[in-house]
């Protein structure tokens, strides 16, 4: 299971990287989002999968799955959301200001 998920993560990262390297702002935002998901899955995997019960006390179970990666991922999800929102609005503003979403055209003036 763990190996499967890691391979899945690899595929997602490949797709995300490919999107990020493209010329269009929209694809870049999509790419960062996919990579965000992939990284969250990777972190969860590093704690071991399906090793115990959900980390909730009081159910007379003593064997829990690792809670630490979960806490980290929870933070990551929220930060990911903030970044996506900011980047989206930034793309929108760039498009408004320059009339294009092609990075090659958005590229700064060549320094003399």
């Amino acid at each position: 299971m763990d190996t499967l998920i890691v391979i899945l993560v690899g595929i997602l990262v490949t797709i995300g990287t490919y999107l990020i390297l493209s010329r269009h702002l929209l694809r870049i935002v999509l790419g960062t989002s996919i990579i965000g998901h992939a990284v969250n899955l990777l972190i969860i995997t590093s704690g071991g999968l399906k090793t115990g019960a959900a980390p909730l006390l009081g159910e007379k179970i003593t064997d829990f799955t690792d809670a630490l990666p979960q806490a980290l991922v929870l933070t990551a999800i929220v930060i990911n959301f903030a970044v996506t929102a900011l980047v989206l609005v930034l793309c929108y503003r760039a498009y408004q200001g320059f009339g294009t979403d092609d990075l090659e055209q958005l590229r700064g003036e060549e320094h003399e």
Binding site: I44, K50, G52, Q70, I77, V78, A85, L88, Y95
Partner: peptide
């Protein structure tokens, strides 16, 4: 993966993100 908190958060965030994407893409 026995992570109920994550599942809930992911669900909410994903919904909001999708709405945000749709909103912005309207202008893009």
């Amino acid at each position: 993966f026995r992570a109920p908190d994550l599942a809930l958060t992911q669900m909410v965030v994903e919904t909001v993100t999708t709405v945000l994407f749709l909103l912005c893409f309207y202008h893009l």
